[in-house]
Simulated scan of single mutants.
Amino acid sequence: MNIIFLDIDGVLNSSPYFKSMKDTDETYNEISDFHLKKLAEIYHTCNAEIVLSSTWRNLDNPSNKVCYQMYEYLLKSLAKYDIKIMSKTPTIHMNRPLEIITWVNNQIDKEDIKFVSLDDDFSVEDYAQYGIEDRLIHTKFFCNDISEGGLQQEHVDRAMKILMN
């Protein structure tokens, strides 16, 4: 099974993307269509599943209407490219690498899992603490140009290489 652990901010958007969207009238514009297409390329080419590792996973609470609307926006954005969220990582001290390895270790067929983590927040060193540094596809939120931020083709190529080998 091929798994993409998905962070949202810094992967499906970036600081320059938000600057480019500041004058739009859209209610929600947190997710870039350009970056969604890149995610879809990995997802469909590698027959992958999405496990949400972003703090956005905490928005999935229908009792909080404002947060839940953002979560529904995420689901609709992904659905435009026929992408679905299969699962979410547990919340463990907001330590994404630990949450990822815990999710993997809790799977019945964990030996059959190949995975990548699309993440801008945690470093290679953070992932190395759990022996999964080679699975990190490190993207950028803070950068100077929209062509540097979020999921780029170099990240797509590396993720597909990891998942397909």
Rank of each mutant, 00 (worst) to 15 (best):
H155T: 05
K84T: 11
T24F: 06
N64F: 07
H93K: 13
K84A: 09
E125Q: 04
C46H: 09
E41Y: 06
V66C: 02
T102M: 07
I4P: 00
D157W: 05
W103P: 05
Y43S: 04
C143M: 08
Y130Q: 11
E49N: 15
I101T: 03
C143G: 05
F5M: 03
T55P: 01
N95A: 13
D25C: 03
L6S: 09
K80G: 04
I162F: 06
S14L: 00
H44V: 11
D119C: 10
T55Y: 00
D121K: 13
V124D: 10
S87G: 11
Q69G: 10
A48S: 15
Y130T: 11
D109A: 09
Q69N: 12
L136Y: 02
V66I: 09
Y73Q: 08
E148D: 14
T45V: 10
L36G: 01
Q69C: 04
S15R: 03
F122K: 06
E30I: 07
I113W: 06
H138Q: 15
H155S: 04
Q153G: 06
S14D: 01
S123H: 06
F34L: 12
I50A: 02
H35E: 14
N105M: 13
N2M: 08
F141K: 06
V156T: 13
K161P: 02
Q69H: 06
N165K: 15
I42V: 15
H155Y: 10
E125G: 00
E148V: 04
N47D: 15
I50G: 00
E133L: 03
L98E: 12
I137N: 00
M164C: 12
E154Y: 13
V156K: 09
Y28I: 05
V11L: 04
P97L: 11
I92E: 09
V66D: 08
D109C: 01
V51S: 04
S77D: 05
N95P: 09
Q129C: 10
Y127C: 08
Y68N: 15
Y73S: 07
Q153V: 09
D25E: 08
K38V: 08
V124I: 12
N58D: 13
L59H: 11
P16C: 08
D23V: 07
F115P: 06
N95Q: 14
T89N: 09
T55W: 01
T89L: 10
D112Y: 03
D82N: 15
M21D: 05
H155K: 09
A48M: 07
I132K: 00
F115C: 10
G131F: 12
N2K: 13
Y130I: 07
A79G: 00
S32K: 10
D25Y: 02
Q107C: 03
L75R: 12
P62H: 11
K114F: 01
S20V: 09
D7A: 05
N61S: 14
H35K: 14
Y68K: 07
